[in-house]
Design a protein around this nucleic acid. Structure first.
Length: 426
RNA sequence: GGAGAAGUGGCCGAGUUGGCUGAAGGCGCACGCCUGCUAAGCGUGUUAUGGGCGUAAAACUCAUACGAGGGUUCAAAUCCCUCCUUCUCCGCCA
């Protein structure tokens, strides 16, 4: 959510930001609502002030045994009017809040302006693409041939966009997740967390999934209005919802491996084969709570934490800066890391690291107490994948495939695989 | 699942014949005074959000907030209803 004061004092700044994002949201709607709200507040508050003044007078008269019927009559009218106005005000406030909740974050000044992913500049490349003296296959072909993946079985159990892994493949995925967690906690200063995988509406609203993107979520059908998390960003960021973090604790860095559940509504026909786009996948997620003065350093640090995983696995990647038109709803700046997939002959997203500045902190009311002032301020929140486990499994299979259909296990993972060096056909 | 108890400010804790309690008292914290040092003591202050006014900021003023939402009433922390959370006992269970 944007700052109300900014909306009121500098609507043109917001309009400009929305233009850069190709958003059609009309800022004038807000201004009209806000004017109406202020007018209602002025009226209802003066009536309430009268109530507060006259109330004790009534009590005094009653105690003294005097007649107060004139005051009671007047206050009866005032009370009725106050109820009316309160109702009206609540409506306007809700409309205004709804409007605010649907507005995306303002891009940071350093974010390149652009319309689509075509306009995302590459920041850096790392690693050498593996050279094959044969035509590299896609992961699903290799994995299925080696008995590790079975998409027909998954479809029988759950439907399209699900997977099931067996044996070496299941273990490899577990190894990857564990390797990532060990790296982030052991070398990058993260505290490991196991959060709930099901959360309530308020939590989903705090990070921005609701109210706008409900169709992307899996919702439970009972009356409690619970949702399956689409990313651990949601529970991790909301750990401090409604809380004040002492300044000296910043930055707080959490990471967690969780399953992620996404409805993938609207992605029909995209990535229908293999593990790339699933309704359920594991991801190791990083979340930072940073001091506003240092959040962009934190973004660089977080991006490095994600990149380190690929470097240790010796997987080639490139890092790009998302342009204004391609950024997510809550982000002020985002780096995507794309890993090389020889089977697809393409770089594919494997991590997305964003600084949301105070956008989520304002929604979820996450503040810190600066040492040198009484005023509590909003923290900046960041989130990033470190990494998407399923896609990383894809990258390992495709980059480490051999001519005979076997897969070499990256050295960094061998301790997690009981020393296994190669996965071969039986 | 059954039976009870409770939810007030950073914390503890008053408040229960509805009105003068944003909220006594205590602790903590901040600033000042006092003091050979420490401890103790004295004084002052100590919430958030929104509106008005206005500003570099503040000050001032009004409104709202006693788990959440709704109701009764001229008026609710105080009465009624629903929900949430926590705790205790019984049952059940990985």
């Amino acid at each position: 959510m944007l700052d109300l004061k900014l909306m009121q004092n500098a609507p043109e700044v917001v309009r400009e930001a929305l233009d850069k994002r190709n958003s059609k949201i009309d800022v004038q709607e807000f201004t009209d609502l806000d004017d109406k709200r202020k007018a209602l507040i002025a009226e209802v508050e003066s009536l309430k002030a009268e109530q507060n003044k006259v109330g004790p007078e009534i009590a005094k008269r009653k105690k003294a045994g005097q007649d107060a019927s004139d005051l009671l009559k007047r206050m009866g009218e005032v009370s009725g009017r106050v109820k009316e106005l309160d109702r009206e005000l609540a409506e306007v406030e809700k409309a205004e809040k709804d409007w605010m909740m649907a507005v995306p974050n303002i891009p940071h000044a350093s974010v390149p302006v652009g319309v689509s992913e075509e306009d995302n500049p590459v920041l850096r490349y790392w690693g050498e693409k593996p050279a094959f003296d044969f035509a590299p296959k896609e992961h699903w072909e290799i994995g299925t041939a080696l008995g590790g993946l079975d998409f027909e079985c998954a479809a029988k159990l759950a439907g399209a966009r699900f997977s099931i892994s067996f044996g070496w493949c299941a273990r490899l995925e577990r190894a990857l997740a564990q390797f990532m967690l060990d790296t982030q906690t052991g070398e990058r200063g993260y505290t490991e967390v196991i959060p709930p995988f099901i959360v309530n509406k308020a939590t989903m609203t705090g990070t921005g999934q609701l109210p706008k993107f409900e169709e992307d979520l899996f919702k439970l059908t009972d009356e409690r209005e619970l949702y399956l998390i689409p990313t651990a960003e949601v529970p991790l960021t909301n750990i401090y919802a409604g809380e004040v973090i002492p300044e000296e604790k910043l930055p707080v860095k959490f990471c967690a491996q969780t399953p992620c559940f996404r409805s993938e509504a609207g992605s029909y026909g995209k990535d229908t084969k293999g593990l790339i786009r699933q309704h359920q996948f594991y991801k190791v997620e990083m979340v930072n709570f940073a001091h506003p003065d240092h959040s962009y350093e934190a973004l660089e640090d977080m991006t490095r934490s994600a990149e380190r995983i690929l470097e240790k696995l010796n997987l080639p990647y490139r890092t790009i800066t998302l342009c204004t038109g391609d950024m997510g709803f809550g982000a002020a700046k985002t780096y995507d890391i794309e890993v090389w997939l020889p089977g697809q002959d393409k770089y594919r997203e494997i991590s997305s690291c964003s600084n949301c500045e105070d956008f989520q902190a304002r929604r979820a009311n996450i503040k810190f107490q600066p040492k040198d002032s009484k005023k509590k301020l909003f923290v900046h929140t960041l989130n990033g994948s470190g990494l998407a486990v399923g896609r990383c499994l894809v990258a390992v299979i495709e980059n480490y495939q051999q001519a005979d259909g076997s897969i070499v296990i990256p050295e960094a993972l061998r301790p997690y695989m009981g020393g296994l060096e190669v996965v071969k056909a039986e």
